[in-house]
Amino acid sequence: MILTIALRELKNLFLSPLAWSILAVLQLIMAWLFLSQIDIFAMVQPRLAGIEGAPGVTDFVVVPVLQTTGFILLMISPALTMRVFSDEKRNRTLTLLMSAPISMTEIVLGKFLGITLFFLLLLAMLSLMPLSLYAGTSLDGGKLLAGLLGLSLLLMTFAAIGIFMSSLTEQPVVAAISTFGLLILLWIIDWSGGENEKVTGLFHYLSIQTHLEYFLKGLVSTTDAAYYLLLTLTFLLLSIRRLDQQRLTG
């Protein structure tokens, strides 16, 4: 049942031009960035050759590309998740799901899975560019995989937050803006400098970006994975609660 809803959600995305345009625009931007990174690498490569333990092509091209992907997706994902529940509420189609013999958990998980599948597809397409480097050189495969894993976890979090925001309102734009606001806040939360080390430590932990950094460095740690998974789980639970509560308040 979860899969039914997920596939419907995924197909719905592709019925509107939104998904296609997101895929196209993102591919274009990332290609530009990718090529310019390669240019820079080609320029500095002779100098790097002399240094021992110098950063390789993975650090110079793949990591910045993935990092920027994360940030750009932060701006794009609200547009994808905004209509998940608010559109259904506005068009009164949520009734269909609510009167079917499906639990609220299945509905939310189905929607979440649908969006996540789209993000994975997006990521798969983007990772073709770094992979194409295998044609001419060899990459640090571990680092690439760690980066992709980090990005997937990050995107799952984006999806969960977006779905929750979408369950709050009937206005897709309001959902998009609040999602964007919360994501940006989580991204920059550790920018606030402070004397108190405990506080900065907390902000550092809360930041959605610092955890991605570790993945991009090739460090796959349970701490960072747990951070994303917990955040995802929290927002999914909140969405379920929110929809259940709506049945009570009407």
Binding site: N12, N91, T95
Partner: peptide, 9 residues
């Protein structure tokens, strides 16, 4: 329901 819950797409 009052408003048919149909997906227009």
């Amino acid at each position: 329901p009052e408003q048919p819950p149909v997906y227009r797409d």
